[in-house]
Design a protein around this nucleic acid. Structure first.
Lengths: 367, 367
DNA sequence: CTGTTAGCGCTTTCAC
DNA sequence: GTGAAAGCGCTAACAG
């Protein structure tokens, strides 16, 4: 009688088997040791070509997949990257980070990693959650978003010695940080230049409070462009990123004497509020007042008139972040520590005097 | 000289220690064996109260956290729930699933689980990705979205014997499936009733192709309501969920003689396309033609006029799904196998003849 | 180049 | 009620 393939013994000690093919299944199948199989997969050069081929064939035959938990336990590494997601809110166009998440999942997959989501309401929570994830060894690296000056999260992660990279630059000149960011200043400058090219000379700005570095950066883009074009940079408002705040700011700016004829905004949320204000005043966005936003959120494309906006290259951001994290994981220092990407101006009706010249929808005459 | 706390030995065999507190650290600290600590945490009744208290105190003192990988390896269970995310696209209001993802992350956290993201472009890919995740034992359960008739994913997961639950009902009357869904028919019926209550009698419908179960379900809501109110249900269009398709459908419906004065739509994307068409015709959404959407996407609140829409109770959906999965994981059969939730009508200007009665923004008079 | 040994951190028998 | 042994699946170090 041929020997049975390892009867589980009189009283099996360990947990119930899950039926998946393991390393030793492959080893037995080929007639080598488990170690050789492991080597064939992870250190191919260590094993004789002929043996290696037989092993790899068996791996395919049996459809073997290494067990992540075992590998993670052994290697102290799970190939899991943690990302925080904010609690959801209805009242914002702030799906930017959601789109980013998709791009990130894609890039991570390309690197053989998975994303693990972590939930936190505020920065303190976030650090706690990171600590938890790290402590339980289920995570190899972190990707942070929306960094700001003196970001506690950066300090914590660095102290723990975990690899991480951030979507958002180090606003305090921390040169060690691996970050990728989008050049808001350049983006706003492009939008400002665009409306100026439409013939506008009184260009206002609706942005965020200057306490935020991003807010300051973006306003600078507008201000510098105005100045370089010899235009007045006196018409501006700083408000929190909220539809109604944008609406109010627009009313205030348009109530002023010699009011702006174009309003460049720091976000689509604000810009959509501005469009509402125009509508309330019986003004048409585009022909009467040019408006631009930032982020190119779905709402920008789907509102009427379409909102001119700045598209962040999120796929590139995600890819660069994953690359940076991979470098860090491999003990290499990142090939490029900082990357600043330009957003792309997407022109729609809200900033044009007439209809979109190309790619626009054919205009239907009124009945 | 007091004995040193365990020098690592002449030539350590295993991987480099990560410095985290382990079970045996706690055991040594208390002066008991490792599994007494394990028992104190997992089977408290098995350990003497006095010992247990000492152990738990030590756990707190040392800030011990069980290692997930080790636990997963031993228990064949990782407390990880997998969810698929679609590749990102700019041109849709389809952030619904993103909002859902946030809610799900929150609910999962409440159940001590984490979400692991998985990337797939089409259903075949998706199944492959699921198989991969499952095979590598890094995942305990799956949550599916957007199920349809004869969904291959359901068959695959069931065949593998993995716990899973779906956001989306079993359209083929599969009673075993654990699902949570939102009642689109009831939602559309509510929207139809709402515009009828505004005095509209010629109510049209812009929906999805009838090949989709959801599309049929929603159209039924409109049709039944029209019929029960004695209104004609002859004005309708079925198009794919796309802004421009909605726009074209609206033009077609409004070109007809005796055209509709209200258009109920299957999605915000379509409804926003309809709003564009109205604008192209010089018609005002609200006063001239009532329009409603579905999903209450951010764009609905931020466009002008605001779009009346149906809010899906995503937090509840997420919570119920996690509960179902937990029941399944605990070998219990779910307390409730199916849950059908009602969406909530959110009324904005697009379906009203005049301004929003309450909660609306104060109207600014034209200058 | 290959196999043996040991151990990552945890939990489930089983004996005491 | 507690401890000892065994093993989940994998890989680094060491011999052969």
């Amino acid at each position: 009688m041929p020997d049975q393939p390892a009867a589980p013994g009189p009283s099996s000690r360990g947990p119930a088997p899950h039926g998946h093919v393991t390393l030793s299944d492959v080893a037995r199948y080929v007639g080598v040791s488990a170690q050789s199989v492991s080597n064939a997969l992870n250190n191919p050069q260590r094993v004789a070509p002929e043996t290696r081929d037989r092993i790899l064939a068996a791996v395919r035959d049996l459809d073997y997949r290494p067990n992540r938990s075992a590998r993670a336990l052994r290697n102290q590494s799970s190939r899991l990257i943690a990302v925080k997601v904010e609690p959801s809110r209805d009242d914002r166009a702030a799906l930017l980070l959601d789109q980013f998440l998709h791009a990130l999942a894609e890039s991570a997959a390309g690197a053989g990693c998975h994303l693990i989501l972590c939930q936190a309401d505020d920065p303190a929570d976030e650090i706690k959650a990171y600590r938890e994830l790290l402590h339980t060894t289920s995570v190899d690296a972190f990707i942070l978003t929306s960094t700001h000056r003196d970001d506690d999260r950066v300090g914590a992660l660095r102290e723990w010695g975990v690899p991480f990279a951030t979507f958002g630059r180090s606003w305090d000149g921390d040169d060690e940080l691996a970050w990728v960011d989008v050049d808001g200043r350049a983006g706003i400058a492009a939008a400002t230049g665009h409306v100026a090219a439409q013939g506008h000379t009184r260009i206002g700005f609706v942005g965020w409070p200057l306490s935020s570095e991003v807010g300051r950066d973006r306003r600078t883009g507008w201000q510098e462009t105005c100045e370089s074009l010899g235009l007045d940079a006196g018409r501006h408002a700083e408000v929190v990123d909220d539809f109604d705040q944008g609406r109010r700011a627009a009313h205030a700016l348009l109530d002023a004497p010699d009011a702006a004829t174009a309003l460049v905004c720091s976000s689509d949320t604000l810009a959509l509020g501005v469009l509402r204000a125009l509508s309330e005043r019986g003004l048409r966005a585009g022909p009467d007042i040019a408006v631009t936003g930032f982020d190119n959120s779905p709402a920008a494309a789907l509102t009427t008139p379409g909102l001119t906006s700045l598209r962040q290259p999120l796929e590139q951001v995600a890819q660069d972040l994953v690359t940076a994290v991979e470098d860090l994981l491999g003990d290499a220092s990142p090939r490029r520590r900082h990357t600043l990407l330009d957003p792309e101006l997407v022109v729609r009706e809200s900033s044009l005097r007439g209809p979109l010249p190309v790619g626009g929808h054919p205009q239907k005459e009124n009945p």
